[in-house]
Computed example of a mutant assay.
Amino acid sequence: MAVYLDCNATTPVEPSVAALAARFLEKDFGNPASPIHDYGLFARAAVEHARAQIAKVVAARPDEVIFTSGATEANNLALLGLAETAWREGRCHIITTAVEHKAVLEPCEELQRLGFELTVLPVGADGRFNPKQLAATLRPDTALVSTMQVNNETGVSQPLAETAAILAGHGAWWHVDAAQGFGKELEPLQNPRIDLIAVSGHKIYGPKGIGALVARKRDGRLPPLKPLMFGGGQEQGLRPGTLPVPLIAGFGEAAKLALRDHEQRREACRTFRAEVLQAFAELGARQNGDERYTLPHVLNVSLPGIPSDKAIHALKGTIALSSTSACTSHTRTPSHVLAAMGIPPERAECSLRLSWCHLTPAVDWQRVTEILRQLRPS
């Protein structure tokens, strides 16, 4: 069986998370919207407990956590949910960056179609946007700034602390897509200037199908979001539908473990990273994204002369990896992230993304390098 090295696409589930989710599937299956009996009361208590666990990771309040189906829905709720208020107030300018996930770029394009003016900040060869360019672009009518925390393709963390300082005296809402960094890079998301944080359970060893939008209050009030769906009034009227208690409980457990085991996990990833870097250095690989800003569990490299699809196919019995975002890998389109970094198409076509975790077993790197060497043209 191939060793799984695609944790940025989705992570394995922690055993205690799976056990807790199974309990709420099989035994404690009550509906939290029916607190008229013990089943419903216990389900509601489980949901609120998980809400507090998730809030704690980003130093937020439990009532600022709105459950969604994942980070994609949370991003859409944050970006599109602010549109009506922003338009009414005459603030029709939004800012994002060129390396955002499609779950941010496409809602921004929809806002542009609706009449908003969109500014897309470029990034440098290091994979980061320049905060000075953000400061220069910011206007009195800027309603929303959307920046990711960690890039899903390169693992490069963005300058959130500098962004917070720039936005300190401005009224724009600040949204952060934290799907890849939540629970893995703690301090940046705890900055109270961030208004909206999108997170996903299956990126931190929790279940698929559950995420949250953390909406921090200003002056005691949530950001003026409008719901995207209607019917039921759950989640403070912003996300209707019966709450998936097994998924929520599992997500809460995963958040608790992410906070508790943060340093041990990072150290395990650093140790594994040293092996990965050594193996690919022997092949003359070029790293995409600045090593200084890359989280310890991700590596994006290009292997000169070896197309990524050929490498992935040849390695499929040894390691399972990818070349781009899981959400766009089926399209076979060039990576917009690598293109934004100024990486030539021929190098981007040879790029591989490896992502691992504290649960990843050992890899036979000698076998990996032998396979890849055989793919090189003689």
Results as ranks from 00 to 15, higher is better:
L111D: 01
L121V: 08
T163V: 11
I94M: 05
P107L: 09
R139S: 10
F129H: 15
Y4C: 01
N130A: 11
R286G: 04
I371C: 05
V3Y: 13
L352F: 10
A198V: 10
R139W: 15
V104A: 06
D6W: 13
I306A: 03
L189N: 07
P307K: 00
R44Q: 15
K56F: 10
Q366M: 05
N288S: 08
G252P: 10
R91H: 12
A86T: 07
N31E: 09
R113F: 13
R88W: 14
A161R: 10
S16H: 02
H330R: 05
Y4W: 12
A83C: 12
T331L: 14
T85H: 15
P227E: 00
A19S: 15
F129P: 04
L375S: 07
N75P: 00
E253T: 05
G232V: 06
D195Q: 01
L257E: 05
W365R: 02
C357T: 10
A279E: 07
G342N: 00
L79N: 03
I197Y: 11
G115R: 06
P15H: 00
V363T: 04
G241A: 08
L225H: 06
K102W: 12
F116M: 04
Q278V: 07
Y4H: 05
D6R: 09
E110G: 02
G231S: 09
N76M: 14
P307G: 04
Q278A: 15
C269A: 14
R128K: 11
G220P: 13
L375K: 06
G289P: 09
R128D: 13
G181Y: 12
F230A: 11
P227R: 00
H358R: 01
P246Y: 15
S146Y: 12
P240L: 04
L243S: 08
H336Q: 10
F230N: 05
E109F: 13
A254C: 07
I36Y: 14
N191Q: 14
A172S: 14
L338E: 09
G81V: 11
I94K: 01
Q158E: 13
R91V: 12
G252T: 11
A281R: 01
S351R: 02
R221Y: 00
L111I: 06
